[in-house]
Computed example of a mutant assay.
Amino acid sequence: MFAVYASAPSPEDPLATLTVGERPEPEVPDGFVAVSVRAASLNMHDLWTLRGVGIKAEQFPMTLGCDGAGVLADGTEVVLHSVIGDPAWSGDETLDPKRTLLTEKHQGTFADTVVVPARNVLPKPTSLTFAEAACMGTAWLTAYRMLFVKSGLRPGQTMLVQGASGGVSTALVELGRAAGMRVWVTGRTEEKRALAAELGAHQTFESGARLPERVDAVFETVGKATWQHSMRVLKPGGAIVVSGSTSGPDPSADLQRLFFLQLQVIGSTMGTREELGDLLRFCDLAGIRPRIGAELPMTDARAGFERMLAGDTAGKIVFTR
């Protein structure tokens, strides 16, 4: 079958082993289902897989793609949940120490067919296209959990999104606006700030800019480059919700500010199957649609990877079959 895969780990040059070609047809174990992929979105996790982060060398070649949408053998249209837990685990699967994501143990979605546990497919709302639904399982689910499960924000409060144009950031803007938050966003360029405003941000600012007032919560996916700013713009008792560190994982903790102002630093990873179901219903009911910055045929996957590696994103990059 056709697939986009990493043939081997390549820490220094992640695109060196990116391969577009043929892979064997997958077997379908008991309790699993085969999904004919219609669309799949690109995530930073795919670049980490190419670098060999979070995956052993003997697991290559590995088909890339953490999330997607497609069709079951009976014609049911589905969205994929990317977090695969241990069958013996009960409760929040993101806390399962044996959990994995697609492309860490199981082959991913950038292929004609992906095989996943039966519980990892959910019905696709008819209001979402396959390309839109393919954005939900990783970036949008991460944003949903950050905002509605972890932050403690209420409608009318002020949130700051650090970084304006990535998949999680654009999802936070749209979800926050739909939920009645006052949404502020920082961005490195005028173009990225304009995108955030178009998606519903009430105000946008240059990275590191002084804000008109302090905010109730900051949403962090950038890390080292924005951390000091995030700490300084919070109200006493406010929260930073962190789901990534694309600029580096070693920010200054600023512990005096942390304890004196009783700030909260909250980690957030992906989301549960139940939360994905809630997200899909919310998008359906509220008429929210993910911003797709580029939609490419899967055969042109390298162009999408090059755009992500260069930071040239304006929403999600989606591959279609």
Results as ranks from 00 to 15, higher is better:
Thr204Asp: 03
Gln59Ala: 07
Pro212Cys: 13
Glu275Ile: 02
Glu295Asn: 03
Lys56Pro: 00
Val115Pro: 04
Arg23Tyr: 14
Ser247Cys: 10
Asp13Ala: 12
Thr17Glu: 11
Gly65Ile: 03
Arg99Tyr: 13
Arg273Ala: 10
Ala310Asp: 04
Val115His: 09
Gln157Asn: 05
Ala69Leu: 06
Ser252Glu: 06
Trp140Asn: 08
Ser7Met: 05
Lys316Ile: 03
Gly137Met: 11
Val185Asn: 03
Gly21Met: 13
Gly108Arg: 15
Gly180Asn: 04
Met44Gln: 13
Val265Pro: 02
Leu280Tyr: 09
Arg23Pro: 05
Trp89Pro: 04
Lys224Val: 15
Asp96Phe: 10
Gln162Ala: 08
Arg289Leu: 09
Thr142Trp: 13
Gly311Cys: 07
Ser7Tyr: 05
Ala253Thr: 14
Met270Thr: 05
Ala253Leu: 15
Leu18Lys: 03
Phe282Asn: 00
Thr272Gly: 07
Ile266Trp: 12
Glu274His: 14
Ala57Val: 14
Val149Arg: 10
Ile288Ala: 01
Ala164Asp: 02
His81Trp: 04
Lys98Arg: 14
Leu18Met: 08
Leu47Glu: 01
Gly156Pro: 11
Gln203Gly: 10
Leu15His: 07
Pro24Trp: 14
Arg38Phe: 10
Lys56Ser: 07
Thr320His: 14
Lys224Phe: 04
Ala40Gly: 10
Ser230Pro: 07
Leu279Gln: 02
Thr158Arg: 12
Arg193Ile: 06
Leu261Met: 07
Ala294Ile: 04
Pro11Phe: 15
Gly68Leu: 01
Val149Glu: 09
Glu206Met: 07
Ala34Ser: 12
Ala286Phe: 13
Leu279Glu: 06
Arg210His: 08
Pro97Met: 11
Gln162Met: 12
Val149Ser: 07
Cys66Val: 06
Leu261Ala: 07
Ala111Leu: 11
Leu95Glu: 15
Pro97Ser: 03
Phe130Thr: 01
Gly223Pro: 02
Pro29Asp: 03
Ala16His: 10
Phe130Ile: 00
Pro251His: 13
Glu22Arg: 08
Ala69Gln: 05
Val265His: 09
Gly167Ser: 10
Val79Tyr: 00
Gln264Ser: 13
Pro97Asn: 03
Thr17Asp: 08
Gly167Lys: 01
Leu296Ile: 09
Val183Asp: 06
Met231Cys: 05
Leu279Val: 07
Asp216Lys: 07
Leu296Glu: 01
Arg291Glu: 13
Thr204Ala: 08
Pro97Trp: 15
Ser268Lys: 00
Asp278Trp: 00
Thr204Val: 15
Val233Asp: 01
Asn43Phe: 13
Arg291Gly: 08
Val218Trp: 00
Phe60Arg: 12
Gly167Glu: 02
Leu147Glu: 01
Glu77Val: 09
Lys105Asp: 06
Ala294Gln: 07
Gly108Ser: 12
Ala69Asp: 02
Ile84Arg: 02
